[in-house]
Each structure stands twice: as structure tokens, then as C-alpha cells.
């Protein structure tokens, strides 16, 4: 069985990518299971989707614990623990990153035993482009080695049919280029032998103790504990304040920030709380002196 996990941010089209791959497998005669995994989806927040494909009926369900292929549409997710990009990766898993940095750098940085590939074709700011999902799907299709170019094309036409000819055409172009670019890596994804029963590791079950209701009720006693959540990791662009141009009217940018992420010194000089700024850029749009610039996150210092 093929087990593929795709990671991206809300809005990058990972669900669509998983459906394209699923439909392409299905067209090739495979049994398929594909699903997105999200709670309350927020633009920019990490999400993932997965695909299983097998020539026999699929009985497994839910999260893929030991993936054969992990596709990452946004390299910045690797450092986000909650995104779980590296979960269950072992020496047999192939990691494909959309990144300008070479594979060897990632291999070394992440200290991975298994193979790493990157998609170097990333254009400027392309993780925001609507076709990033198609690029991922095209690459994944080639890497598994059992999906033909025509099956991929058919799947894209099917999944994007409602979006109009222009969208279909640009996604097709991207996906097929990506498919062609990985010709030399065709079939690199190797599903392992199915796990045997014995000897299995017994789960470390625990008897859940009785705790007093003051502890065991879902109450938060700490104040403003949400500041521990670094929603700054959602950001793909960031506001940067030009100190020369800033007139120190921080009540403006601060008031219009939905997240309270523009802080002010006692003198009224604003600064950005990058731990929590989600990159909505409202501050830049309301700044009367145009003192706040929009900088791509990966270009930021």
C-alpha cells in the first residue's frame, strides 16, 4: 500500500492535491482513500491531507503513522512542531520539500536517514500561488511511479472542473512540468513490507487516575494563556516598521490590529509582536505615513 501525507497551510490547496493524487491512483485501477485533516481551518494555519492507495481493499483508517512519501508545500512548516511534518518518518520515507535550498542542506539540517528531494522551481512567493498544490500532486504522481501522465492530467481536469478553463490550464501546466521534472526519480517511493504481528509491542496503557474536579474539569485558570500560542507561525508576509517614517501614532496601527500584535512603548512608538502577528497587513494599510512595509517572510531577517 502507498501511504502519502501532504503538509501545507490553509489556502495552499493540499486538500485538492490529495484529491488529484487519489483520483489519479483510482484511474490507474487502485483502491483509494484520500482525506484532508483539519479542525476549524484558518488561512495560513498548518493543515495536512493524506492518500492511501492499494490494489487490495483498504482497511486502514485515519492518520498515516508511517508515511512512504511526505510532501511539504511550505518549507517553513518543518520548524512548526504542531504541523507534525516529520512525524513517523523513517529511513524508508521520502521527503519532498518545496524549497529553493538543495536537498542535501535539508538532509543535513534534519538529520534524516531517508531520501530528501526538493522542488527547486519555486518562483517568487510561490507558496501563495494557487498552483502549489498542483505542483505537489504532479511530483508525487511521478515519485510513486505507477501513475501515468495521462492519468494525472485526467485527475486534474476532474478535480478542478468547476474552476474554469484558465485555472485548469495553469494547474495542468504546473503539474505536468513538475511530473516531467521528476522523471529521473520515478518510482522512488517504496512501500515497505506490511508489518507482521509478532512480536508486537504491547501499548503502554495506563489506568487514568481520579483527579479532583478542580483539576479534572476543562477550566483554564491562568490569564491570557493564549499568548503561548505562536500564531506568528501562520505568517507568509510580515509588516516591518520603517523607524524613519514612523510618526509614533501607535494608537492607529495598534487599534486596527485584530490580534493585539502591535505593541507600543510608553512614548507611543509601535513595534510588531512577531510571535503573534498573523501577517494580515492591516497595520500597513491603515498607516497614514506609509511607514509599514510588507516583506515576504522568507526574505525577512
Amino acid at each position: 500500500m502507498y501511504r502519502i501525507r501532504l503538509h501545507g497551510r490553509g489556502g495552499q490547496g493540499m486538500k485538492t492535491a490529495s484529491r488529484i493524487i487519489g483520483s489519479a491512483f483510482f484511474a490507474e485501477g487502485f483502491e483509494v482513500q484520500d482525506a484532508p485533516r483539519y479542525g476549524a481551518e484558518r488561512r495560513g494555519a498548518p493543515i495536512f491531507a493524506y492518500v492511501r492507495a492499494s490494489l487490495r481493499p483498504i482497511l486502514e483508517r485515519g492518520v498515516i503513522r508511517r508515511p512512504d512519501l511526505v510532501v511539504v508545500a511550505d518549507e517553513s512548516l518543518v520548524q512548526v512542531p504542531a504541523a507534525g511534518v516529520l512525524q513517523g518518518i523513517d529511513e524508508h520515507s521520502l521527503l519532498l520539500l518545496d524549497s529553493l535550498e538543495p536537498a542535501e542542506v535539508w538532509q543535513e539540517r534534519l538529520k534524516l536517514q531517508g531520501p530528501v528531494l526538493t522542488m527547486g522551481s519555486q518562483a517568487e512567493g510561490s507558496s501563495e500561488l494557487p498552483t502549489v498544490g498542483a505542483r505537489c500532486a504532479g511530483a508525487a504522481a511521478r515519485l510513486v511511479g505507477v501513475i501515468s501522465r495521462s492519468a494525472l492530467e485526467g485527475a486534474i481536469r476532474e478535480e478542478l472542473a468547476g474552476l474554469g478553463d484558465t485555472v485548469v490550464a495553469s494547474n495542468l501546466e504546473t503539474a505536468l512540468a513538475s511530473f516531467d521534472a521528476f522523471a529521473s526519480d520515478e518510482g522512488r517511493v517504496c512501500p515497505p513490507e506490511e508489518a507482521q504481528l509478532a512480536p508486537h509491542t504491547a501499548p503502554a496503557w495506563v489506568d487514568v487516575p481520579h483527579d479532583a474536579a478542580g483539576i479534572s474539569a476543562p477550566d483554564v485558570h491562568g490569564a491570557a494563556t493564549s499568548v503561548q500560542v505562536r500564531t506568528g507561525l501562520w505568517r507568509t508576509v510580515r509588516p516591518e516598521i520603517d523607524a524613519e517614517r514612523c510618526h509614533g501614532c501607535s494608537w492607529i496601527c495598534s487599534t486596527f490590529c485584530p490580534d493585539g500584535a502591535v505593541l507600543a512603548t510608553p512614548e507611543g512608538v509601535p513595534r510588531i509582536d512577531y510571535d503573534h502577528c498573523k501577517g494580515c497587513m492591516i497595520c500597513a494599510s491603515v498607516c497614514p505615513h506609509h511607514a509599514i512595509a510588507s516583506v515576504l517572510e522568507r526574505d525577512a531577517s
Binding site: 491562568g222 490569564a223 491570557a224 494563556t225 499568548v227 505593541l263 513595534r271 510588531i272 509582536d273
Partner: peptide, 21 residues
Amino acid sequence: IALAERHEVGPGEAHASRAPE
């Protein structure tokens, strides 16, 4: 996290304790 004492983050001090940048 949930059961932390309230005085660890006092009113008005949140920005100092928020540790930006």
C-alpha cells in the same frame, strides 16, 4: 498551563511578559 497561578501574568503586564521578537 491551564492551572497556572493567575499572578504569573498580572493585569497590564502581559506585554512585558509576552516576550516579542
